[in-house]
Design a protein around this nucleic acid. Structure first.
Lengths: 255, 255
DNA sequence: CGCAACATTGAACGGTATCAAGTATGGTGG
DNA sequence: CCACCATACTTGATACCGTTCAATGTTGCG
């Protein structure tokens, strides 16, 4: 029962699964091992698969080891608002752990690899290892910081600024973990999904995209985004990456 | 220097300051005492006073023991978006603690009593007392849950639904801590501030308020809000209080 | 090939912003 | 106690940003 017929040939080597999360939150190798030891079998999904279902009971912490995902809330009239985008290394539901059932649906935007850690084991880890508790708190806080930024542009900025800001943010977050600092990357979102993120109609997203293209700020086709003029894009977005970096290390003498 | 001319006559009795927070997060008396012991002198402010300044270094956790406060982000054009409302018992910056400097300004909506806990001492508490770490994480998660709800109505609902939902939320949160379950309470917000919360113009807030009044759903004058038809209001708000209650208790066997 | 999802375009409508008054309301100093 | 002022609230007219509806083009895939 070590590695049966998993999709990733190296999937029986679980040691690399948490590298991105570990790096970001400054977990020690020992804590990383403990997390891995508590985890269940990694799960591989295709694009579109449900990772977490709205209203379902929360049974595990789920770490997104590879791929991208989106969290959405659905309204009575059928429209939906995407409230978060996750990239490799993010936890999908650190904040949700505090609630008995999930308040949003999370689905895969690409093929993904997820690592679930059952609550019972996680609770023990959290109680015994302050660094893990802190890492989960940090994930929740990072999530909240991003959400605040989204609230600002949802409430106060026009369609161009919203789209530009979102593109800047995703670009930045994807480049944190990646080695390749190129200006082109995969953006596995349809215009319809972009609309659900930005609180706009699909039609208007299309027009705004064309405006950004006409200004030679971006290129986007076939889910491949190239940022041609990063500073120009950041200007109309009023993008300031402060909220994505600069997390405070724990006080040295505390432990 | 025990209680000089403090506004609250019982201010030298610090033991009650944390009661609301404690109750919500299920802290033990021992943890509560430890928190109190780590705290500095309580601070009393008037309406309008800055509690936290955007861009300032984060030096303390600040607990709002009494009163209400708002957190706002200001944009280049001078407009602002209020991203959070705090009521008695909330922590103002649990999530911000992870960042070296604050990303938002928080100011008092009423006279308030705040209890600051310097970071150095807090770090020690967090490292040694899992329940306190957990409580701060929970506060961050609760904040994030509320923000997600705000994102949904900012992105996808019209002005009436936004206002209605916000009123439902505030009403609910204020009644959690209060004994008096009446339908009338103080809402220390000007229409301008409401507009900054809802992402609307002041003028439009006024019109929507009048619409809600004309439907006999609410009464609002002189910062005093009465909800005349709670179920009617909740209906147009699509309000579901799930996200405000039902926080998961820590696993019993974990400690 | 043919279907389904996605992208693009145009025209008309509507919700909300903006501008510009005017009207309470409350606080202050004389 | 009143005159005055600042702030908050109210109201109407007009403009614009984004939505909606409808149609057409494009891409990918079984």
């Amino acid at each position: 029962m070590v590695d049966k017929d998993d999709k990733l040939s190296m999937s029986h080597d679980r040691s690399a699964l948490l590298s991105k999360l570990t790096k970001r939150s400054g977990l020690s190798p020992s804590d990383e091992q403990a997390l891995l030891a508590g985890a269940s079998t990694p799960r591989h999904t295709a694009r579109g698969d449900r990772l977490i279902q709205e209203g379902c009971e929360t049974t595990s912490l789920i770490i997104l080891c590879d791929g991208m995902a989106r969290a959405a809330r659905t309204l009575a009239d059928g429209s939906q608002q995407i409230v978060a985008i996750f990239v490799a290394g993010d936890t999908l539901n650190a904040g949700e752990l505090m609630f008995p059932r999930s308040r949003m649906s999370i689905s895969a935007l690409t093929p993904t690899v997820c690592l679930p850690i059952p609550l019972a084991r996680l609770d023990r880890l959290v109680a015994n290892r302050p660094a893990i508790a802190r890492a989960l708190w940090l994930e929740t806080a990072a999530q909240a910081a991003i959400q605040q930024e989204w609230m600002v542009w949802l409430g106060r900025r026009n369609a161009q600024a919203r789209l530009a800001h979102f593109l800047c943010e995703v670009c930045y977050r994807l480049q944190i973990g990646a080695e390749d600092p190129g200006e082109a990357f995969d953006l596995p979102l349809t215009q319809h999904e972009l609309a659900d993120i930005l609180g706009l109609s699909t039609v208007h997203v299309n027009r705004v995209l064309q405006f950004l293209r006409s200004q030679k700020l971006i290129e986007l086709s076939r889910n491949r985004l190239t940022i041609q003029d990063k500073s120009g894009l950041r200007e109309i977005a009023e993008f300031d990456a402060q909220y994505l970096r600069g997390l405070r290390p724990p006080d040295a003498g505390a432990c």
